[in-house]
Design a protein around this nucleic acid. Structure first.
Lengths: 339, 339
DNA sequence: TTTGTTTTCGGGATCGTTTTCGGTAAATGA
DNA sequence: TCATTTACCGAAAACGATCCCGAAAACAAA
């Protein structure tokens, strides 16, 4: 079961290995007949080119590194899938590593990927920003990196982000228009850039409708369902329940809703809910959860696109793509007018 | 920004490239002092070994291919994560491809991975089995493959599977012991091996408790929430609602439950539910969903272990690991005795 | 000092490609 | 007919490591 190489074909046909190589790369200096002959016998012999050798000569790994904070919450698994679909077609393979929402792990992941000589990196940073300067240094040395989500708009690097401020404004405004008078925001991590932005949008809406500081709270949670539950448990104990919650993501919202429901609160009659970064579970719970949907596939594809651009031209201009989404209204936040 | 190679170090220290190589691989024929000297200057110079070259000489890619049917439902994303954690430590990288529950796509994925010369494959087949013979042929030619889930126990190859029959028996028995008299099984795909097995377990329990053919139904669905909804919608229209459902997975269960709840049925009072392959959403819905939890991490790790064993010794004996899980009882299936 | 053994090291082949360079033969032009 | 271009092909040098083999150096025993 030895592997057929270019040499075997060359020997069989009494041509040089250069010709065989040329036949496959089909670029120049090869007659059509010899090319066809080589290709057909290669096929007959069951030849497959050795990617390791090819990569060595061309000094590229054809691997792309993708670093994500997690892939269990649905959003990033969709990113992975979409990116993979896009890059596979273009001859690249994707190495995914997850940071478990941990800065040190993230840095280790990035270094591992760089040492394994990926041709480029797509980084969705986790909470905290102590690594960003390191990444930027690499970036400025010409290392192809595209940032995805969770970074500030004015980071001087190519990036794909979501317009968090705008859509958290809309989400909050929607709650206000439902006549919610007291709104709490379950806000993720205070060091997380998307949290910061969603807080901004939240506050912007409150300001527009002249909410006083008594009428809202911003509570740091985390990004998991259990953290939504924990926070809600506290609020219930303190009997401090507003008439609406705007949550940093669906998981936190679902956890919080669950706790409230179990304690006899009616949603949306007593308390309205809006999530963010819609997951497919949103439609499966009762009541269905209103949420802001992000164009995951498009964002991943764009990230891949920008990265390939940077790989072919490391001096390409910095490009920033800001995406918009849609606010899907469902039962959890819509108080029906009885008819 | 040219890369430092082994030659640069050799030149700088007036030693041969062989010595530098030996210093790094630290195997034999190298004096401790020269080794230390080489390693320290290499570090100073910022040398990182070129994996492409290493792979070429050693004729291995240090890549493992993982083919899964999907990674959006939680189960397989956990598999991906766990496998990656296990293999990264051992110097391997994991290339994940998903088949979208499509046989042709799956075959394409496998071929892509083989052509990219992965050192081994872990395959979680999708529905249907027309590819299995192809895989087995590769396997018997010494290609390292480990099968994961969705295959029959007597497939002559290394594999990691879950004891579906046993645990679907338990799940069904539990419903029976809750005094459910009429139980429907939402069964996934009829060509899917896990579906077949879970049906077996289901029937086994029914037989033990002497259910007549009027008292149960097996309904082909699919594996997604929306298919659970679709099927349930039909049943509601036909007013054909039993007092319990045992579902092929949580997603189908959740979809079905949602439809029922929206139509005024009470769970578990009117209809009890048990899912399978527990997802973390199970705890977030109301009522919480009873389900069979699989030891995902252990299974993935074991698959990696078996694969590495086969890679180092292609003639290693066929090994089959059958895992057990646990039946987590929650509100959806437990009719509380009022007290 | 001689001989034998062990440790340490360098030379060079090798892995399977790509690519440059140079050369031959055919085609073209006048 | 001769010169010049074009088309095609082979030899050989890369790419960056590993590893076998033989030789030098170090050491021990005689």
């Amino acid at each position: 079961m030895k592997h057929i190489t270019i040499k075997d074909i060359a020997k069989k046909l009494n041509v040089s290995t250069s010709s065989v190589s040329r036949a496959f790369n089909n670029k120049y200096d090869i007659k059509k007949e010899t090319r066809d002959l080589i290709l057909s016998t290669a096929k007959k012999m069951g030849y497959i080119p050795n990617p390791m050798a090819k990569k060595l000569t061309q000094n590229c790994s054809l691997n792309i590194g993708l670093v994500v904070p997690e892939i269990i919450n649905g959003y990033y698994s969709e990113i992975v899938i979409a990116l993979q679909k896009y890059l596979i077609k273009r001859g690249y393979q994707v190495l995914v590593m997850q940071s478990d929402e941990n800065e040190n792990q993230e840095l280790k992941n990035v270094k591992t990927l760089i040492n394994s000589m990926v041709d480029g990196l797509i980084i969705a940073p986790t909470v905290g920003n102590k690594n960003i300067s390191y990444y930027l240094e690499k970036y400025n040395n010409g290392y192809p990196i595209v940032f995805l989500n969770r970074i500030s708009e004015n980071l001087p690097a190519s990036k794909v982000i979501f317009n968090n401020i705008k859509w958290s404004f809309f989400a909050t405004e929607h709650l206000i228009l439902q006549e919610c008078k007291k709104i709490y925001h379950l806000a993720g991590y205070k060091d997380l850039s998307v949290s910061k932005e969603r807080i901004k949008g939240f506050k912007k809406a409150l300001k527009k409708y002249k909410f006083s500081s008594k009428d809202y709270k911003i509570i740091e949670t985390g990004l998991l369902a259990k953290e939504g539950m924990r926070v809600m448990e506290n609020l219930i104990l303190k009997n401090d329940i507003p008439d609406a919650f705007f949550c940093v993501n669906d998981m936190v919202a679902l956890g919080a809703m669950k706790k409230l429901k179990d304690n006899g609160y009616k949603i949306p009659e007593d308390v309205a809910f809006v999530g963010f970064t819609e997951t497919r579970v949103a439609k499966l719970v009762t009541p269905q959860l209103s949420s802001v949907k992000q164009p995951t596939f498009k964002m991943a594809k764009k990230a891949g696109e920008l990265l390939l651009k940077r790989i072919t031209d490391p001096n390409a201009e910095i490009e920033t793509q800001i995406f918009n989404g849609e606010l899907n209204l469902r039962k959890s936040s819509v108080r029906e007018v009885s008819n």
